[in-house]
């Protein structure tokens, strides 16, 4: 290396070190495929619980029961704008594959670090609710996973600050209400 390059190299190193972490994170986000987290979570549920998404081409080759899965993009309802929804119906979500680990831990591994785990609830009668949030400009992305004994939903919505504040006040109840609202529209 020519000696004259050393100062430039050092300057570059200094700039990299000095860069605040969020900037680096933002750059990572920018390169993430839009909607990738939602798709990754849907896929994770499929592999974890051995259920299947109808939209995946090789489903017929697998000896697993096919769920009715409805994925809708760009739907509009009153409380939130575009959303993505996957519904798994009449599947067995009661068992857990211990070798695959806890589903919650796997969500953490799957989602980018900027997704904040807002609430995780596991109740005997109502099942599991997991809500993750992420700032997205002047809105907030919210990813809600609800897993019951026989059904599951994955919902991603964009909320404005006012609606997001409501979610923060009662995270579990609002997560369920948002999901109910989205699935009602679906029906």
């Amino acid at each position: 290396m020519r000696r004259t390059h050393i100062p430039l190299l050092l300057l570059l190193v200094a700039l990299i070190i000095a860069s605040p972490a969020p900037v680096v994170a933002a750059a990572t986000t920018a390169t993430t495929e839009k909607g990738a987290e939602y798709s990754a979570v849907v896929k994770l549920i499929e592999t974890h619980y051995k259920v299947k998404h109808r939209g995946i081409p090789f489903v017929a080759n697998l000896g697993v029961k096919t769920a009715k899965v409805v994925s809708k993009d760009a739907r509009r309802v009153l409380r939130f704008g575009t959303f993505k929804l996957a519904i798994f119906e009449d599947q067995d979500f009661s068992g857990r594959d211990s070798a695959a680990g806890d589903i919650r831990a796997r969500f953490r591994q799957t989602l980018e670090p900027e997704w904040h785990p807002l609430v995780a609830v596991r109740l005997e009668e109502e099942g599991q609710t997991y809500t993750y949030t992420k700032a997205d400009g002047d809105k907030f992305k919210v990813l809600i996973v609800i897993i019951g004994q026989r059904d599951a939903t994955v919902l991603q919505v964009n909320l404005n600050p006012e609606e997001f504040a409501k979610l923060l006040l009662n995270p579990e109840r609002e997560s369920r209400e948002l999901t109910n609202e989205a699935t009602s529209v679906e029906q």
Binding site: D102, H116, R122, L168
Partner: peptide, 26 residues
Amino acid sequence: AQKSSELIDVNLDENLLRIIPKKIIT
């Protein structure tokens, strides 16, 4: 968390709490 049959885990950090308006009646 592993032993329990039920779990509630809520995490609201400062960044999220700041989003709540100064006046919000509940």
